[in-house]
Amino acid sequence: MFRISNNLIGILNFVTFLLSIPILGGGIWLSTRASTDCEKFLDGPIIALGVFLMVVSLAGLIGACCRVTWLLWVYLVVMFLLILLLFCFTVFAFVVTNKGAGQVVSGKGYKEYRLGDYSNWLQKRVNNTKNWRKIKSCLADTNICKKLGESQDSEAVFYKRNLSPIQSGCCKPPTECSFTYVNATHWTKPDGSTYPSDSDCTAWDNDQKTLCYNCQSCKAGVLANLKRDWKKVAVVNIIILVALVIVYSVGCCAFRNNQEDNAFPKWRRGGGGYS
């Protein structure tokens, strides 16, 4: 008769194994259907996650239910490393997203974003040419600026809109450029105006494939969006960490049970207590 902790670990890992099947299948499906850089970027991690969950859950399931002590030991080691990794990532996420916030613009419903306000680590990631090329491709695939341009708001209505960080930083020029509004994604440069060569005002282009995707404000908008998402992920990670610690503790009880059962023959164990 299985002990309670072994049963719990077996049930939890059986459920995890079932969950890993659609995750792995989704990753394989995405890899065969991917047509954009964003989709191609996602298929690898999804497949890796599916395989990881499947292998680890099988190790825990067989180790707990079939009393295979060495498999349960491997399962516990992986769980410990996962808990450690998740804890480090959560702390890191809070640290690197501690800096940076949008700046309120007088008379506008949206905020402006500046790259220098964010942590150096995040700035280096988006300033990397290879990384930014992929990010720009993803932004173009979402059609977020195209949808904004289709709204056809009047100038007064547009200035009152609560734009997202990406819409504010990538779909329009910075307010300091003093461009004339035509529509949300089409602006006219004032006659005779000159700007520094490294200015976002110079980087702006009314071409719908360019807009402000090469602007520092666009990178800042992406980081503002990333900061918001990472904060949410960090909170979820804390909940997951608590759950993993509980599962790890139950797994340690199951491992102890396996050791006791392997150390004493069945005829000597009798019907002792269960844990």
Rank of each mutant, 00 (worst) to 15 (best):
Leu24Gly: 10
Thr194His: 08
Ile11Ala: 15
Arg114Ala: 06
Ser5Ile: 09
Cys65Trp: 05
Asn131Phe: 02
Phe17Thr: 09
Val91Thr: 09
Phe89Met: 11
Ser199Val: 01
Ser193Asp: 06
Leu72Lys: 06
Val91Trp: 07
Asp153Tyr: 13
Tyr118Gln: 13
Asn257Gln: 15
Ser57Tyr: 00
Val157Met: 11
Leu86Thr: 08
Gly169Trp: 04
Lys219Asn: 00
Ser217Leu: 02
Ser5Asp: 04
Val245Tyr: 09
Asn206Cys: 10
Ser249Asp: 02
Ala220Met: 00
Glu39Gln: 15
Ile11Cys: 14
Thr180Phe: 05
Gly10Tyr: 00
Phe14Lys: 10
Lys232Pro: 02
Ala140Leu: 12
Tyr274Leu: 12
Thr202Asp: 10
Leu139Asp: 00
Leu244His: 04
Thr202Leu: 08
Ile238Val: 12
Ala156Cys: 09
Gly44Val: 12
Lys209Phe: 08
Lys134Met: 03
Phe264Asn: 15
Tyr118Trp: 12
Cys65Asn: 10
Gly116Cys: 00
Ser137Tyr: 01
Val247Cys: 12
Cys145Gln: 05
Ala93Thr: 06
Cys171Gln: 01
Asp198Gln: 06
Leu61Glu: 04
Gly50Met: 09
Asn162Pro: 03
Arg133Ser: 09
Phe158Ile: 03
Tyr113Gly: 02
Thr97Lys: 06
Ala220Val: 01
Leu18Tyr: 05
Leu211Ile: 04
Ala234Ile: 08
Ile47Arg: 07
Cys253Ile: 04
Val78Met: 14
Ser5Leu: 06
Ile23Pro: 07
Leu53Met: 15
Tyr159Ala: 14
Pro174Val: 00
Ala64Met: 09
Cys253Val: 07
Gly63Thr: 02
Lys108Ile: 02
Arg268Ala: 13
Leu42Asn: 05
Gln216Cys: 04
Asn237Met: 10
Gln123Val: 01
Lys189Cys: 00
His186Tyr: 08
Phe158Pro: 13
Leu211His: 03
Ile23Gln: 11
Gly109Ala: 01
Ala254Gln: 09
Val222Met: 05
Pro265His: 08
Val236Lys: 09
Gln167Thr: 05
Ile83Val: 13
Arg268Phe: 07
Asp117Lys: 10
Trp70Thr: 14
Thr210Trp: 04
Glu176Ile: 02
Trp121Asp: 10
Leu18Asn: 13
Thr188Ile: 03
Arg256Asp: 12
Phe2Tyr: 11
Val235Glu: 07
Arg161Gly: 06
Cys252Thr: 07
Leu76Val: 06
Lys124Asp: 03
Glu150Lys: 13
Gln216Thr: 03
Lys219Thr: 00
Lys266Phe: 09
Val236Glu: 11
Cys218Gly: 03
Val245Ile: 15
Ser57Ile: 04
Thr69Leu: 14
Asn120Tyr: 10
Gly60Lys: 02
Asn98Ile: 04
Thr97Gly: 12
Phe92Pro: 02
Cys177Leu: 07
Val247Asn: 05
Asn143Asp: 15
Phe158Cys: 11
Thr142Ile: 06
Met1Asp: 14
Asn98Asp: 15
Lys99Glu: 08
Lys146Gln: 14
Val96Cys: 12
Pro190Ile: 01
Leu8Cys: 14
Ala34Asp: 05
Thr129Phe: 11
Asn6Thr: 11
Val222Trp: 00
Ala59Val: 11
Ala203Met: 05
Ile144Met: 10
Asn183Leu: 05
Tyr75Phe: 08
Gly26Ile: 01
Gly27Lys: 11
Ser106Asp: 15
Phe14Thr: 14
Ser217Phe: 02
Arg228Pro: 03
Asn206Tyr: 09
Asn98Ala: 13
Lys160Arg: 15
Lys124Ser: 11
Cys138Asp: 12
Arg125Val: 01
Lys124Val: 04
Trp204Thr: 00
Lys134Arg: 13
